[in-house]
Simulated assay, not measured.
Amino acid sequence: MSDGRSVSGQLKKFVFRGKSSSKGDSRGEYLEIVIPELLTAGYSFYTWPSAPLLAWYLWTQRRHLRGLRVLELGCGTGLPGILAAKCGARVTLTDSVALPRSLRHLSACCEANGLVPNRDVKILGLAWGLFLSEVHSLRPVDLLLASDCFYEPSQFEEVLSTVAYLLDGTDARFLCSYQERSADWSIEALLKKWGLKGALLDLDSLSESSGVDYRSLVGDRSLHLLEIVAV
């Protein structure tokens, strides 16, 4: 994990489009999100391919987001959570409490999209697997989000224990996009241990219903979208 210094940067633009639901309105719906990236600062300063996939899914569900209590874990540049906030959700963005510079950059990403930190969105540092007062204050939530949080196997249980606590006794769900990096990595046993169950979402069907091909976002990468709920 790195919270290092940057020597170069870029502004990356993500555009989401959809047909309007209003009769006679042919303009459609449009949302543009810009993310300032610091390319050599560390992996939390870059938007990894799983994040646009999760953001795309949220965009297809945008009419159901308004008013939801949404929490993103390990959010890095925060693309999915920022999109949810722009669609009317009540969003809390979190990343490692050990990476204060990453949290400051996350604030800058929000501000680049007209969101005032701790007014329009909350930003909080967390330590996965440690149930400190900050974690207790996050309940209740309606929707948990994460992209590429299953990156380092040694942290899988820390992530899922935190998810289990936040979902316990609720109808909330956890949506996680991830890149398949090794066939030997599995969270199945940990899901059972922590009283959770997961199912992969059918991205091809979602593409058909939304009219947007998710493959245009992910290319030839092996990316998946997993929904996890409490048993």
Rank of each mutant, 00 (worst) to 15 (best):
V34S: 14
I187N: 05
E72D: 11
H105E: 06
V159P: 03
S20P: 11
A84K: 04
S186N: 08
Y214D: 04
S186Q: 08
K122E: 13
A98S: 14
L54K: 08
L138D: 11
D184A: 14
S137V: 00
G74F: 04
D120P: 09
R27H: 10
M1D: 13
H105I: 05
N113H: 10
L65S: 02
S50P: 07
I123T: 05
L115K: 05
R221L: 13
F131R: 15
L11S: 12
G114P: 12
Y30F: 14
S96R: 13
E208H: 12
G211S: 09
S2R: 13
W59C: 02
S209Q: 14
L38F: 03
K192N: 10
K192A: 13
S20E: 09
F174M: 10
C75W: 02
W128E: 07
S154H: 08
E29Y: 01
G9L: 00
W59R: 09
V231L: 10
G42K: 02
V163N: 03
I123H: 03
C149I: 13
E72R: 04
P49F: 01
A172E: 05
W185R: 10
P117I: 07
S186P: 02
V121K: 04
T40L: 03
L54N: 07
G125Q: 06
R104C: 09
S102G: 13
V135H: 09
P52G: 09
L11A: 10
D95V: 03
T92L: 02
P36E: 06
G81E: 08
N118W: 04
D142T: 06
A127F: 00
S96K: 10
R69P: 07
A85Q: 09
D168E: 14
W128H: 05
W185S: 12
G198C: 04
R17K: 14
L130R: 14
S147A: 15
S205W: 05
T94N: 08
R119E: 13
L53H: 02
R17C: 11
T170L: 02
S205Y: 07
G78M: 08
S210D: 07
L71P: 06
A127D: 13
G81P: 09
P153C: 08
Y178N: 10
I35M: 09
A108S: 14
P80A: 08
L68A: 10
A55H: 04
S2I: 03
V229K: 13
H105G: 04
A108N: 13
Y30H: 15
P49Y: 02
V116C: 08
R27Y: 00
L225Y: 01
T162E: 06
L79W: 04
G9F: 04
S102K: 01
E32K: 14
A55Q: 05
Y57W: 13
V121C: 12
A84F: 05
L126M: 06
A230T: 15
L73N: 00
T94F: 00
W185I: 05
L31G: 06
Y30L: 14
N113A: 10
V229C: 12
G9R: 15
V231N: 11
D142F: 01
A98G: 07
F174G: 07
N113I: 06
S96N: 09
L115C: 05
G4F: 00
V97C: 07
Y214W: 15
L103E: 06
P140L: 03
L103R: 05
P80V: 07
E158C: 09
R5A: 09
N118G: 04
I33N: 00
G198W: 02
P117N: 11
A189P: 01
L53N: 05
G81N: 10
I228F: 01
K122G: 14
E158H: 12
R181W: 03
